[in-house]
Write a protein that binds this DNA or RNA. Structure first.
Lengths: 212, 212
DNA sequence: ACCACAAATGGACCGTAGTCCGCTAACCGT
DNA sequence: ACGGTTAGCGGACTACGGTCCATTTGTGGT
């Protein structure tokens, strides 16, 4: 029984053991205040003091709950993140299991591009913490495990982990936003490029379905 | 006079028009102080105040000369950077012109990996500025232009700019250090993976030389 | 040799992320 | 219901990157 290695490798945020009621209330208040502020201005310009003040709590409370700025931003993305992971692990094809690995990989990238399209600035804010932090975080580990598994399933015979890093590199929000804004590439164009990239990399593999 | 788009696209640091003598002296002092400090501790932990103090100049002078922290780090890398660019634009094959495009691309990546091996922390410090700054900087533009040209020369018929972004993504210092340190990949392994990546991407192209 | 002026300087100052620690009040066992 | 324990709180405090501007200093013209 395979196909479940990725499932076991889904760490994300473990629910804290018995959080006190007032703490839970504060966490929710903070999140909604942050969400509102980020909605009004760009995520980059909202300060932690503003959020604390607007939520009516002390600054220490913010950091106690979320560790640092990136942690808070990540928490804002968390719900969407969970549903994304849910979808590509257990959801319907072609994103979820059922479709050939190559198609799942294409769908994965397309979904990620949509995600960036919608949450771009927030994603960037969540990712630029300490150097390498992004890569060490469990979210990256989950993506990497998933892509690695797909590459293996598709019959790729090289270093699947390395290729996963490369492919995920093409989906880094900072880069995608650069391509969209600075290079003025359209979403459709990016989708097409991603599709071609995957196609080319997996061109001569068995691909678990033998197409092409 | 054309014939070398990549050559024309080499901006880097333009020599300032008539820098005052004391200013030049201070710049040198600052650079050597910074170099010493960065050599002693990790580049991440050295503060601007320390550098200023150690160089015996005011903090304002630092920022006047280098703009911001990243600028100073970049300046520390500048000499090596110039020689790298010189090498792949005009130097001997396979890095410079003369070899088939695909080989030049492989050599480019290998050289970059060596660069990261030696200057890793400094490169990271130089790159994590404001989001997207790295991509907007002229150094990235130069790399991108070079790789793009090589891909075109190798007969790749897709979106060469996009593929250049992807390939450069595999050479981002933050990622490479992650692979080296966290994933414990060896330099040789990384070289091999890079070579295979390039080979696979350019497998069925004319490659300007018709190998394979 | 001198002057006028732009370039350069330094350090006080600011905003922001993140830490620290004494106090408060929620929770659990009795 | 109550008291002891301790998670949680808040906001003063620190560290650091970056800005500002009054003052100094090098330089080119005369």
């Amino acid at each position: 029984m395979r196909g479940n290695a990725a499932l076991a490798a889904l760490p994300m945020l473990e629910p804290v053991r018995h959080e006190r009621a007032d703490a839970a209330r504060n966490r929710a208040t903070i999140l909604s205040a942050a969400e509102r502020l980020v909605g009004e201005r760009s995520a980059q310009t909202v300060t932690m003091d503003e959020i604390a003040c607007s939520a009516g709590v002390g600054k220490g409370t913010l950091f106690r709950h979320f560790g640092d700025r990136c942690g808070l931003m990540r928490a804002l993305l968390d719900e969407r993140e969970r549903s994304f992971q849910e979808d590509f692990i257990r959801g319907p094809a072609p994103l979820g299991p059922g479709a050939p690995a190559r198609e799942r990989l294409v769908a994965f990238g397309e979904r990620m591009l949509e995600h960036i399209e919608i949450q771009g600035d927030l994603l960037v804010a969540a990712e630029n913490g300490a150097p390498g932090e992004r890569l060490r975080h469990s979210v990256y580990a989950a993506y990497r495990a998933h892509v690695t598994a797909l590459l293996r399933d598709s019959g790729y015979d090289g270093d699947v982990g390395y290729l996963a890093d490369v492919l995920l590199g093409a989906l880094v929000s900072e880069l995608v936003l650069f391509q969209r804004r600075e290079l003025a590439m359209s979403p459709e164009n990016l989708r097409a490029c991603w599709g071609e990239l995957v196609g080319r990399l997996l061109a001569d593999t068995a691909s678990g379905k033998g197409l092409r």
